[in-house]
Design a protein around this nucleic acid. Structure first.
Lengths: 347, 347
DNA sequence: ATGAAAAGAGAAAACGATTTATCTCTTGTT
DNA sequence: AACAAGAGATAAATCGTTTTCTCTTTTCAT
């Protein structure tokens, strides 16, 4: 490997002088500095990362916490955007693992690598992050809020302010929600759902809100079965994500009903998948690209301007993505009398 | 951060002695060594990665080349398996990017970080890898063969020795193939397809083999349209992957036909998705978990036993995953006379 | 022309580990 | 009892940078 020493020899200068030239620091004449940089480039010199890190204790490396098993499309997309942005700014990305076998925590791993910052794309447990939280390593989380640190979140609660009016406009008034397992995100969504329904003047019976798990179509199928068994089943069901919606539609069809003729379904996430399926999925499309990019930019700012940086919570809005799984309900439906029910409950 | 010096002071020993103790090296009595290690553990000492790397020029870090935009499920799964394995063996993973802006190649990036090895999960262009290929950094590729280096590949050619007999057994004889864009993998698959067909005594007309692109349902849809327009359309169509199959089925339904009643479809990859869709996809399921694990193990061996390591090509077999998109054809089909055609072409 | 100030370059210390060479102190042998 | 050998520990060099401190040279004002 070509070292700074070699460059120095080639230039007939001291290592110190070359270092100053390469780092645009005073102590060397501008013309000579430029010339040195050119020589270095020609020699394809790149500073040894380990040496630089050792000396400066800044690594230009971001630790990534991503316990999610890389397979979740939403998080994969976010991570990809993070990567694109970090690459642009010349930061590297290394996965952090809390090697419980080694008795090493996330924090310790980050310290060992001297990460300049840490991005939590999807952490396993809150506990494992505690140590990091209380350290002074810049930290940005995605879709997860840690007190005192910047978080980039999707508009979990507010999304329903778009979803519910959309469904109401499509003629639905009996809307059920199958949601994921308990957690920050889920709580926000459920509250957002109730809120939005109230704002639209909908009365949602308790048994319309059921728990399933994210990305477990079977669970959603089960919940769906319960909903269909009600005396007054919903006309439209919201699912926790686009994969879960498949479990729902499967169950619906198993009952001899069909989507969207008998029941409409609405997803969450807006995977690429959702546009390819037949019927195409109506869903709430999250802006993963933007989330990743914003998170990365924010983290870099926190790193490079630590003094002035103020942590904040940034919401990235998504948008309703219409699809065939939700049809216009009031027109041509088989539900003349049901509409009356709606009029009643509207009041 | 706690350094080796602190540990040394705490133990009343020299840094050198402590280093030997921690690295299980001779020059210190075994009992004292054990005691030192215990003290170090209590102090939560972890050697500074940069310092160690600088001195030893071994980083315990693997460079990952993954240009695929993390969103391809097949590669995501493989990468996840790689990660699990590397974590187990206490290696870190850093993404390598050929920062063209910085005028830095993969090789240079790997050198700068002093990566112990490089894993190519999905490289963009062959050219960008050339420099790496000719270096002496251990290198393992996945589903891509670089001369002189270990490659872990799926059984691209041989898979058809299972797929075709399966389809034949299901009663199909007019089988078409929509394949991906040209490349190592595609060539193997196409050849494997022809081979397997010959072995099963099938005559495949030229116009039954069409090019599309991987993960571009629209392209596959187009190819499907051409196939359906033939005087003698196939009874079963193979697609380059599970996403593409969606483009195919969409087109088929657009023509007023249905899957699998009128046309059967067979995918490739075996995503989680394939089991959730309705109708469920018949596909060739790749063993991504095994591919990733084997690749990681192989790379570590190449690193830790460089002297003795012999590069090789390792094939990981997949398996036919039956599904509703392929039905038994000869029984109850609407194709009495077609069957005769088959008898003819068989001869 | 002289001195002070400023600028450019070099020498050397430091970062935190590993590793080699050196030293000291047992221990065993004659 | 004296010496050799070997074990156990220390001291010091080193990896490739950055950075501080020092030194030399130039420049400019008096």
């Amino acid at each position: 490997m070509v070292t700074i020493k070699m460059v120095a020899e080639r230039c007939g200068l001291s290592v110190g002088a070359v270092s100053k030239a390469l780092n645009h620091q005073p102590g060397i004449s501008p013309e000579k500095a430029a010339w040195v940089r050119q020589v270095a480039a020609e020699m394809r010199y790149h500073p040894n990362a380990a040496a630089r890190t050792l000396k400066t204790s800044r690594s230009k490396n971001i630790g990534i916490i991503f316990e999610n098993r890389l397979i979740h499309e939403f998080f994969s997309e976010v991570l990809e955007a993070v990567r694109a942005c970090l690459t642009e700014k010349n930061y590297d990305m290394t996965f952090l693992n809390s090697r419980e076998s080694q008795g090493m925590s996330y924090y310790e791993h980050a310290m060992q690598l001297q990460c300049d910052g840490v991005m939590v794309v999807h952490g396993r447990t809150r506990g494992a992050l505690e140590e990091l939280m209380n350290s002074d390593i810049p930290l940005v989380t995605i879709d997860h809020i840690l007190y005192g640190h910047t978080a980039v979140v999707s508009d979990n609660a507010d999304s329903f302010r778009k979803i519910i009016p959309y469904l109401v406009q499509m003629g639905h008034r009996r809307i059920a929600m199958v949601h994921g397992e308990d957690g920050d995100v889920t709580r926000l969504r459920v509250a957002g759902f109730h809120n939005a329904c109230r704002e639209c003047g909908l009365e949602i019976p308790e048994e319309y809100v059921l728990e399933a798990r994210y990305h477990e179509p079977k669970d959603s199928g089960l919940a769906t079965r319960k909903l269909l068994a009600l005396k007054e089943p919903p006309t439209c069901i919201l699912y926790p994500d686009d994969i879960s919606i498949l479990g729902g539609t499967t169950e619906i069809e198993r009952q001899g009903l069909s989507v969207p003729e008998d029941i409409c379904c609405f997803g969450y996430d807006g995977n690429r998948l959702s546009r390819l399926l037949r019927p195409s999925l109506a869903t709430y499309r999250q802006n993963t690209e933007r989330m990743g990019r914003v998170a990365a930019e924010e983290l870099i700012q926190a790193i490079e301007d630590t003094k002035c940086y103020i942590p904040r919570i940034i919401t990235v809005e998504g948008a309703v993505q219409p699809g065939d799984s939700v049809r216009q309900w009031d027109r041509g439906g088989k539900s003349g009398e049901e509409k009356q029910d709606h009029e009643l409950s509207k009041e």
